[in-house]
């Protein structure tokens, strides 16, 4: 059945390639993450027709590429840690030096990143942070500390929502404790296990897709959340404030990668250059409400985004931490901690 489908797809592709000499670009992207007008603009400027499929998680992207889709797409938009994983799986093509005209537009801080040193395979798309918000009607004290989640003040006990993803919640706990991610130190891991087990008594729920709703409805008075999502909670009328804790917070970045065996490699490079134009990067940010990693975008953003407390950390905020990719044996311990937490 699968072979039949692949065969049919191959024939269809060949037929299309033969019939239309017009250039094409095949994009595999997150849902609702790029405005259609921007794709139209790309087609108008270059004459390249864009075909897009969408996915809803990094894991789905990986699974589908692994299951035989590699070679049918030109570019995809994995998150930071997924870039590492895909690179290690040999799914990414290398962008030669000088191939990208607009590479100089990448902000310096995003040029040499741990998941893709020197940007050999990827360019920044959007980045944001994962931290938490607090309802200011309930708690008026200092919120720039991870104690809010892991050692909460009396007012917030039993009214805290945490993200239902082992990755982000356990990394956030590690930041709170000041221990490295992917630790193999047994005392640190035991302490982490004890910390989350103890903190759970003060947590009301584990919820990711509802992270905004529980804050807006008042079910949670404090909750872990992504900054863009959190901004929406505030704009929907909740008196909530986003925190950039002194101990640190998580940052993540989605990146446009050049896939291995891309059928339209030239078009893919043109698309990446297109997305590195400040004007186009700003258009994505105005749509997605996170932050572009491209120089010269600032002035082109909606006023709200230029000043919003979610997207603009205070001057004394520490740098954020990326989620790291652990090896299998280490990951197993973290998985174990998570299962014990939710037993």
């Amino acid at each position: 059945m699968k072979h039949l489908k692949l065969g049919a797809a191959a024939i269809a592709l060949m037929a299309m390639a033969g019939a239309a000499s017009a250039e094409k670009l095949s994009v595999y992207h997150w849902f609702e993450y790029i405005p259609q007008e921007l794709l139209d603009k790309f087609t108008a400027e270059t004459g390249i027709e864009v075909v897009m499929d969408t996915y809803d998680s990094n894991e789905t992207l990986l699974a589908n590429l692994k299951a035989g889709k590699l070679g049918s797409y030109d570019v995809a938009v994995p998150g930071d840690y997924m870039v590492s994983i895909m690179k290690n799986e040999g799914m990414l093509d290398t962008i030669a030096e000088g191939e990208l005209k607009n590479k100089g537009n990448i902000e310096d801080q995003w040029l040499n990143v741990a998941f893709d040193d020197g940007r050999m395979h990827s360019i920044p798309y959007q980045w944001g942070s994962t931290s938490f918000m607090v309802n200011r009607d309930v708690y008026g004290g200092d919120i720039r500390t991870t104690d809010i989640i892991f050692n909460p003040p009396e007012e917030l006990k039993g009214k805290i929502n945490v993200l239902d993803t082992a990755g982000e919640t356990l990394v956030f706990a590690s930041i709170h404790m000041g221990i490295p991610q992917c630790s193999t130190d047994r005392d640190q891991l035991k302490a982490l296990d004890e910390l989350v087990q103890g903190a759970k008594a003060d947590w009301a729920s584990f919820n990711s897709d509802g992270a905004k709703d529980v804050l807006v409805s008042g079910d949670a008075a404090a909750g872990m959340i992504w900054n863009g999502f959190g901004q929406k909670a505030r704009l929907e009328g909740a008196n909530v404030e986003y925190s950039y804790p002194k101990q640190g917070y998580i940052v993540w970045m989605d990146n446009v990668v050049l896939l291995k065996d891309a059928p339209n490699r030239d078009a893919a490079i043109k698309f990446m250059d297109f997305l590195l134009e400040p004007e186009n990067a700003a258009a994505v940010t105005n749509f997605a409400r996170y932050t572009a990693g491209v120089k010269g975008v600032g002035a082109l953003l909606d006023e709200e985004l230029q000043t919003s407390p979610e997207q603009n950390p205070p001057a004394d905020a520490p740098a954020g931490t990326f989620v790291e990719v652990c090896d299998e044996a280490t990951q197993k311990v973290y998985d174990q901690i998570w299962t014990r937490l939710k037993q």
Binding site: D164, A204, K342
Partner: peptide, 12 residues
């Protein structure tokens, strides 16, 4: 569904 939505996904 019930443990996820009503129980806050706290206990499997």
């Amino acid at each position: 569904l019930a443990p996820d939505l009503l129980g806050g996904a706290k206990n499997f």
